[in-house]
């Protein structure tokens, strides 16, 4: 487990921001809610705090917008929502991810279908 940590963290760093955008597609969230939802997915978020610099960057990039809302307990909270730009980014990633995942699965033999030259054309049209 410990031995695979660097590899996992590389993978996580690559996909985490798209997972954040995907959660926000279902509606705005405040930070803690987002963390709780992502944390429920195994292995996606090792230290919860790492989500916050990422949210800061996504906001700067214009993929995410923040608004302040009153909370029942304590001071107002910042809510994060997906912008049109964030939506586009997510859509594009979705397409790329499917291709990427299928390619890796095919080579590793971890997918539902083993890679064979004849499958190449049919698998791309089936998705």
């Amino acid at each position: 487990m410990e031995r695979h940590e660097p590899m996992l963290s590389q993978l996580r760093r690559g996909v985490l921001e798209y997972c954040v955008l995907a959660v926000l597609r279902d509606g705005e969230r405040y930070g803690y809610e987002l963390v709780a939802e992502l944390g429920a997915a195994d292995g996606l978020l090792t230290s919860e705090g790492t989500i916050y610099p990422l949210l800061g960057r996504l906001r700067k990039d214009g993929a995410v917008a923040t608004t302040w809302r009153e909370s029942t307990s304590g001071p107002p909270r910042r809510y994060y929502s997906l912008t049109a730009r964030g939506y586009d980014t997510l859509e594009r990633f979705g397409g790329e991810w499917t291709r990427f995942r299928d390619a890796v699965d095919a080579i590793l033999g971890t997918g539902e279908e083993r890679w064979t030259p004849s499958l190449r054309s049919t698998s791309s049209s089936s998705t």
Partner: peptide
């Protein structure tokens, strides 16, 4: 603890 080490939080992104 769940938030993680501050150094790690900063390093992950920056």
């Amino acid at each position: 603890e769940r938030l993680g080490d501050p150094e790690e939080i900063v390093a992950e992104q920056y």
